[in-house]
C-alpha cells in the first residue's frame, strides 16, 4: 500500500494557506507542487509537512519564503522566439485595426515576457496606443519586474532570441548596462502596469484584445485551468487573441469550442 500520510498533510497545508493568506493552491497540479513543498521542508528544517504547516500559520515571513518555492519564476525575454515571431507576423496586422489596445500578460513573473511584447509593439508602431497590464501572484517577482533589472549574463541569449523573433533593430537599444545588470529602457517600463492578480481567485479587470498567459496553466489542474480560460474568455473582446506556452492548449479544456487555433504550432488561439 502506498502511504497517503503526506498527501493528507499537503491537503491540510494548502487549506491552511488558503484560510490564512487567501492564496489558493488547492487546485494546482499535485505532483509538481508536492515536489516543491518537499524541497522547502529541507530548507526550513521541518521534519514533516505538518511541522511546516504550523510554522506557516504562525510566521508570515515563512509563508513569504514558501511562496518562492510554490511559484516557479523561470522566464526569459522572447522565450520561444517562434511565438513572438508569429505574434508579429500574424496577430499584429489584426491589432493594427484597433484604435486603442489593451494587452494582458497573466503570470508575468519578473517581467521578461511583457517587456518583450512592449519591444515588439514599439517596433510595429503600436506601443503608443497600447495599455499593457502584467499580473502575477508573487510579490517579489512583481517588484523585480517593476524595476526592470536583469542579469547581464542573460543578454547574449536574449539578444539571440530577439533576433530569431524577428526584431527589426538592435536589442541593445532597449537597455542600459550597469555593472552586472541591465536596466530596461524607461519608455518601456512606463508603459506597463504591474499588479497583483490571481487566476485562481480574482476576476476580470479589463477588456483586452490580446492575452498572453504562458507556462502558468501547466501548473493548474483541469478545473483551475477552466477557471482561467473562463476569465480570458470574458476579458477578451470579440475575436480577441490568446497566446499560451508551448506545451499548453485550450483543446482539452471546457472552452475548446470557444477558441479556435490561430497559429497552431505557436499555440496562439482566437476567440470564436
Amino acid at each position: 500500500m502506498v502511504d497517503r500520510t503526506v498527501e493528507i498533510e499537503l491537503k491540510l497545508l494548502f487549506e491552511a494557506i488558503y484560510l490564512k493568506y487567501s492564496y489558493d493552491f488547492r487546485e494546482y497540479s499535485g505532483a509538481s507542487l508536492k515536489r516543491r513543498v518537499l524541497l522547502a521542508l529541507r530548507e526550513f528544517g521541518c521534519e514533516t509537512v505538518s511541522a511546516l504547516q504550523q510554522r506557516i500559520l504562525h510566521e508570515p515571513q515563512v509563508f513569504a519564503e514558501l511562496l518562492q518555492y510554490l511559484t516557479i519564476p523561470v522566464t526569459e525575454m522572447f522565450r520561444d522566439p517562434a511565438y513572438f515571431r508569429a505574434l508579429r507576423e500574424h496577430v499584429v496586422p489584426v491589432l493594427r485595426t484597433y484604435p486603442s489596445l489593451k494587452i494582458w500578460v497573466a503570470g508575468c513573473s519578473t517581467g521578461e515576457e511583457i517587456y518583450s511584447l512592449a519591444i515588439l509593439l514599439h517596433e510595429e508602431g503600436l506601443l503608443e496606443r497600447s495599455m499593457l497590464y502584467a499580473t502575477d501572484i508573487n510579490p517579489r517577482s512583481l517588484e523585480r519586474a517593476r524595476q526592470g533589472i536583469f542579469d547581464i549574463n542573460h543578454v547574449r541569449k536574449y539578444t539571440r532570441n530577439y533576433q530569431l523573433a524577428g526584431g527589426t533593430r538592435s536589442f541593445a537599444d532597449y537597455y542600459t548596462a550597469a555593472y552586472d545588470s541591465v536596466l530596461i529602457d524607461r519608455r518601456l517600463r512606463d508603459k506597463v502596469t504591474f499588479a497583483d492578480h490571481s487566476l485562481a481567485t480574482d476576476s476580470v479587470f479589463a477588456e483586452t484584445q490580446l492575452i498572453s498567459c504562458r507556462n502558468v496553466l501547466i501548473y493548474f489542474n483541469k478545473a483551475l485551468q477552466d477557471r482561467a480560460f473562463g476569465l480570458f474568455h470574458e476579458s477578451l473582446c470579440r475575436r480577441g487573441f490568446l497566446g499560451l506556452g508551448s506545451k499548453e492548449t485550450v483543446e482539452f479544456s471546457g472552452y475548446a469550442d470557444r477558441f479556435e487555433p490561430f497559429a497552431k504550432e505557436e499555440r496562439i488561439f482566437r476567440k470564436t
Binding site: 498527501e7 505532483a31 516557479i72 501547466i218 501548473y219 489542474n221
Partner: peptide
C-alpha cells in the same frame, strides 16, 4: 519534467 498525477494523467513542469 514528466510527472504522474493521482488521477492517472500526465503532468509537465519546468521545475
Amino acid at each position: 519534467h514528466l510527472m504522474i498525477e493521482q488521477d492517472l494523467t500526465l503532468a509537465l513542469s519546468q521545475d
